[in-house]
């Protein structure tokens, strides 16, 4: 478990670096259909592998490009505490849903 003191983008960059260190994406970085320039939170699950997983490379690069496209249009606003809590809640629930799915099938 790694906490990134930063925003959505910082998490994506960290994940990209891990992918190039042979980690494989377990969850899609754009999960939730919450737009990248809306939420400051993002939890992503990866698994350590042996070789570079090309599908993970493609997906994280596409996700970073998508983030940059949205951020160019409009930066993530400075949200009030109530809204931040809603974004945290959604991130948590989607994260739990992923864990649920993984434990079901592993």
């Amino acid at each position: 478990m790694k906490f990134i003191q930063g925003n959505y983008y910082d998490v994506l960059i960290e994940v990209r670096d891990l992918v190039h260190l042979c980690y494989e994406l377990i969850t899609h970085p754009l999960v939730g259909s919450v737009k990248p320039n809306e939420t400051p939170y993002r939890s992503i699950i990866l698994k350590q592998g042996i070789n570079t997983d090309l599908q993970s490379v493609t997906i994280i690069e596409n996700s970073i490009q998508t983030y940059e496209k949205f951020e160019r249009m409009k930066s993530t606003p400075i949200w009030s505490q109530r809204i931040l809590e809603d974004f945290q809640f959604v991130d948590l629930k989607l994260f739990e849903s992923s864990l649920d799915s993984i434990s079901l099938y592993s």
Binding site: T27, I59, S101, I102
Partner: peptide, 8 residues
């Protein structure tokens, strides 16, 4: 349209 790549 699930969250994990294995589901996908």
């Amino acid at each position: 349209e699930n969250v994990t790549l294995m589901d996908k």
